[in-house]
Write a protein that binds this DNA or RNA. Structure first.
Lengths: 205, 205
DNA sequence: TAGATTGTTAATCGATTAACAATC
DNA sequence: TAGATTGTTAATCGATTAACAATC
């Protein structure tokens, strides 16, 4: 349910950027996101009465409300652990979007790695810290979430340290199951799992 | 449901690699994947009777069966469109895993981009073709699935061309909704959406 | 007012879990 | 045989959809 909120927000961001539409109906919001209109209304009504009967939802207002609900009304500091080629690319990609998109309130402020050759360097201004310093740097920079791009073998170890450092959300790219206490949210971005699932549909069903 | 199959397969791959375990119960398979044991049995029973009552599942046999079900018993050729820094990193990452893991039956055989500076070059032996040649190269190399790492604005355009070229599965990294005919499977790997969702849980609930 | 669209209730659908007879 | 574990049925749970009164 929560996972559809960012979908709605994206559409509202696009509409706000175009600046031509002031109102949107649950039907149109649903069409643009691939969600049924009844479900759109239900999702939104769960958090308050944001619409006007007979009229629809005011784009700017709903957008502001969704940002508040998602805690995206203020910048959220994030870190990335594992500055390999994938971690490096995701960092660059992320920083670029932060620079170019006014809405993009997820700020990458720290990178971590265990390789002495990388520690002390920086990726587009963002410093690479020693993995050993996680518990020190994370609270200091008030980092709230982390992206994990380390090898599968180290994923759980890194997760445990992030949890100890006070991280509240983890996006895991490592091809491994990681577990964290229930007050820490874990999302999986396991590329291989997705491709293997897609392969299932190659045969006729 | 299908999405849990690659999870089971991964555990079986690990067990087969260690070579110490010959049998596994639905309970243990569930524990290792975070799935309830009843659900594990139900998922597997949907495709056949793979286990022995009172005994469990034979690791090698179940593994072979799952590979067949997921169409991973033979190599599957895939392509990647959009050789930016993310596309490049994912390509390298993928090729590395293909080299190092014996199981990894997803073979990256073609890259596509529209940048003349990139066309004709190669990433670790895999050639970068002109985006305009998709409809030509894809059938020729028997490419079955594609990873899309182009900017949001071009995602739907690229998708349409991939569909026309005969691609049956698409993994989309672009921060945009893409649509394809129902005989073409689309999976979303939208990093930002996941991070925004995680941000929701930063507040106390 | 007439038309449109919300918020919400009830109905439907699908997925997960509990339980257990069958049987290795 | 006794113990363990599967395959499967029935029960439960949650999520989505249909429908509509309220009202802008």
């Amino acid at each position: 349910m929560i996972r559809r909120l960012p979908l709605y927000l994206r559409v509202l961001d696009e509409l706000a950027l175009e600046g031509e539409t002031e109102l949107i109906s649950s039907h149109e919001l649903g069409r643009r996101t691939g969600v049924g209109s009844a479900l759109v209304r239900k999702d939104l009504a769960w958090f308050g009465e944001f619409g006007k009967q007979g009229v629809g939802y005011e784009v700017d207002f709903l957008r502001a409300e969704l940002r508040k609900i998602l805690n995206l009304d203020e910048e959220v500091s994030i870190a990335l652990v594992g500055v390999g080629s994938l971690g490096m690319a995701l960092s660059r990609y992320h920083l670029k979007r932060f620079r170019e998109e006014g809405n993009f309130n997820l700020k990458l402020v720290a990178l971590f790695d265990s390789d002495p050759a990388k520690i002390g360097s920086a990726v587009e201004g963002v410093p690479v810290y020693d993995l050993e310093k996680i518990e020190e740097v994370v609270p200091f920079l008030q980092v709230k979430m982390a992206i994990v791009t380390v090898p599968a073998e180290s994923a759980q170890f890194v997760t445990d340290r992030l949890v100890r450092a006070g991280i509240k959300g983890i996006l895991n790219f490592a091809p491994a199951k990681i577990t964290a206490p229930e007050n820490v949210q874990v999302a999986s971005a396991d590329l291989t799992l997705e491709l293997q699932r897609l392969a299932y549909y190659l045969a006729d069903h």
